[in-house]
Amino acid sequence: MKIGIPRALLYYYYIPLWRTFFEALGLELVISRPTTKTILESGLRHTGDDVCLPVRVAFGHIIDLKDRVDVLFLPRLVSIARREYICPKFLGFPDMVRQGISGLPPLIEADLNLYRRDSLYPFFSALGRNFTSNRFAIYLACRRAQQVQARYIQLLENGFFPEEARAALSGGTGEEQREPARGWPRVAVIGHPYNIYDPYISMNLLSRLARSGVHVCTADNLPETLVREHAARLPKHLFWSLGQRMIGAAWHYLQRPDVDGIIHVASFACGPDSLTGELISREVKRRGKPFLNLTLDEHSAEAGVVTRLEAFLDMMRRRPLLQVGGNGR
């Protein structure tokens, strides 16, 4: 049986978990193709105009999948950490899809809600019963999935980007240590994984930076405990998990002397982003680090992004040139 998973939203966080679980139960995974103009446009056609860009893209990925899989995996993500929620659009996503797209294959749904109880087992148990009545097989698949996910997280914390970490997992070469990244300046890119790791949506942001010699780090390269420690400096607990992650990471990188600048990537029409962006920029002002806020939407022209990035890098690169040389021009 072929199960389809859209290459969108929390795919970038959870794919090793989903993949291991379903494959252990004997299912064949089909991941939608990387985002292209065609995928984005089909997503735009099927969503209303008040929907944020990441959800529109996710719609495109479901359309890309729907005719070539037997079932479609669409979990209802309510909460991914205790006492926290994630964006309501994730919560309503399966319903939005059912409303907006016709001719869907059967949907495999289950609620992922860790608000009260930090255990993935009830979720996987409900999922697994769609495919087998063997509870022990489900238990084993769940355990194996969590082991692989833990390794994935470890790889990310060792400085891998998701794509590299997935390659290391599937290669099984045991390359736990990444070659230490070099480059200058060192820039922290803070944004939702589905924005910054999708090369089409981010207009190749990460590879552009890498190509011009920048040493890039992201929120996912930091251990969860460290991120939460910094986010805890907020006067009130932030109940959005993703916002918590971005703020904690930004605040951490802001106080690191070896990080030269911060880029905040937001998507237009994202409510939580507008808030986290503001909180980050206030802290930036106190610390005085170079900061760039990039807002992405489906109309974004590459030229505007390139100009801003170039100017941002110049801002860091020309600094020592002027201060040391004094007469650089």
Partner: peptide, 13 residues
């Protein structure tokens, strides 16, 4: 500040 660009913005939409 002191001859060095510290911040900038361009009009967006």
């Amino acid at each position: 500040r002191n001859g060095v660009v510290t911040d900038f913005a361009m009009n967006t939409v």
